[in-house]
C-alpha cells in the first residue's frame, strides 16, 4: 500500500510539473502597433487595462499593464487615449500582459 501511495505521489508531482511546463509553453509573445481606444486604471492604482486597436488586423485587444514606469505614464497622462503605441505582450489564455508599451511618436 505504501509503495502504491509513493507511486501515486510521484505521478501527481510529474503531472503537476508537466502541466506547469505546458502552461509556460502556452504563453505566447505578440507584438502589435495600434491606437489606444480606452485606458482604465484599477482602483488600487497597481494595474491598468489599455484597449489597443491593432493597425494590421483592426482587432481591439485588451492588455493588462502592471509595470511601474508605464503605469506612471498612464496616470500622469503622458500616454493617452488616441496615442499610437507599440507593445509586446504575453498572451496566456484570455489574459494579455504587457512586457513593453511605448509610444511610437518621438520628437
Amino acid at each position: 500500500m505504501k509503495k502504491i501511495s509513493s507511486v501515486i505521489i510521484v505521478f501527481a508531482i510529474m503531472l503537476a510539473a508537466s502541466l506547469t511546463v505546458i502552461s509556460t509553453a502556452s504563453a505566447e509573445t505578440i507584438k502589435i502597433t495600434g491606437v489606444i481606444s480606452k485606458i482604465e486604471i484599477a482602483a488600487d492604482q497597481k494595474s491598468a487595462i489599455a484597449v489597443i486597436k491593432d493597425n494590421k488586423s483592426g482587432e481591439s485587444i485588451s492588455i493588462t499593464i502592471a509595470d511601474e514606469l508605464t503605469l506612471d505614464k498612464l496616470k500622469d497622462k503622458r500616454i493617452l487615449e488616441g496615442d499610437e503605441i507599440r507593445t509586446k505582450f504575453e498572451k496566456e489564455g484570455d489574459k494579455n500582459t504587457s512586457k513593453m508599451f511605448k509610444k511610437t511618436a518621438g520628437c
Partner: peptide, 25 residues
C-alpha cells in the same frame, strides 16, 4: 527622475532611442 526623463527618454525618434538607457530602479 520622471520630470527629467519626460524629455530625455523621448529624444531621437521614440522612447529610449537616442541614448538607449533607462533610469528605472
Amino acid at each position: 527622475i520622471k520630470n527629467c526623463m519626460v524629455c530625455h527618454e523621448a529624444a531621437g525618434g521614440g522612447a529610449m532611442i537616442k541614448r538607449g538607457f533607462s533610469m528605472a530602479k
